[in-house]
Design a protein around this nucleic acid. Structure first.
Lengths: 179, 179
DNA sequence: CTCCTTTATGTCATTATTGACATATAAACA
DNA sequence: TGTTTATATGTCAATAATGACATAAAGGAG
């Protein structure tokens, strides 16, 4: 069982979802393509960690909706108790910035501008996510506690928002450096 | 040529280094094991992007010191001009935090405490790095410009410091949430 | 003198991840 | 009516990355 498998189980603790939906919703936490997710779901099903039902849809193609089993929840709890791997970040931009002196200021500015747009779009998405969370919650989000269903998602979106804000501040700082 | 290959070339624009040194110095920007780096260096050498000399050492085993060639620099400039891949972050902790409600507050606090220690050590390393950069520089670091050799490294360490500070603020915020 | 750690280079099997190929339904658009 | 887009599921070859195995020199600890 790899980390992504446990990630899928984690998502399924909140909602039953199809493979396609899981693929979409796990992106902020663990980037993965559908070609990796579908085989893992089949494995998880074989092990009894998840179960699925066919769900017919009139407006869209039919889907297989997966739910976590009690056995799956046990596996999750065991995994959480294990030592946590350190985060891995791979950003091509940092490698390019390292040797930015190879190109001129104008090209450097352009490169950073593209990334800034990416960060701004990302921030927008997190803002929308936070709004959606608030609408679905009876409590104000900052009063959520560990027992509440939305707690994990809330604190992660908060973390992601803090990070993207920091990234945008760095972009502004870089713009001044490249004036 | 994959991204890590270009990353190795990037490092070599500043200093000639051995595979072992490259492996150590690329970690903050792109995590990779020596078993991935040595074969790539051999490929880069075959393509004429780098060249190496054997360097005998009395206090340590001998090493192969690689330098970037003009051809390698051309390849780097071409790569910088290409669209930049989006950053990929994979953090097992975020998956565990998502379903943190499965375990009790005490276990959650412990998990976060381990990560906080990791962030603090990381911050310490970046502080030392920044000190080392300042000592090696004639100018104050905040006056470095794109043409200066240390510029890229400086702005990246600054970015990394900002990020780890944000991570530590989130840890403090989480501690309150888990009181 | 032996064991452990760091430095140093390498290979190879396995695992993780991506990208391409394949198929199909349904809505929207032209 | 044909085309594109989003949804939906899947396989498979190729690439990226890790972990284990292997070797060796040199220093330090005991």
């Amino acid at each position: 069982m790899n980390t992504l498998s446990y990630g899928l189980l984690s998502l399924l603790t909140k909602n039953s979802r199809s493979g396609y939906e899981l693929m979409q919703h796990i992106q902020p936490f663990w980037s993965a393509k559908h070609s990796q997710i579908y085989p893992l779901l089949a494995q998880l099903e074989q092990k009894g960690h998840v179960a699925f039902v066919h769900v017919a849809q009139s407006d869209k193609p039919d889907k297989k909706v997966y739910s976590i089993t009690e056995q799956g929840k046990d596996a999750l709890r065991e995994w959480i108790a294990m030592p946590t791997d350190e985060p891995v970040t791979r950003d091509e931009l940092s490698l390019k910035v390292y040797c930015i002196g190879l190109v001129d200021k104008e090209q450097a500015r352009m490169m950073l501008a593209v990334r800034e747009v990416y960060y701004k779009k990302k921030k927008e998405r997190f803002n929308l996510l936070m709004d959606k969370l608030q609408q679905a919650s009876e409590k104000p989000l900052d009063q959520l506690e560990i027992g509440d269903d939305a707690f994990g998602m809330y604190v992660l979106v908060h973390k992601a928002t803090m990070k993207v804000d920091t990234d945008l501040i760095w972009c502004e700082w870089m713009k001044k450096k490249l004036t």
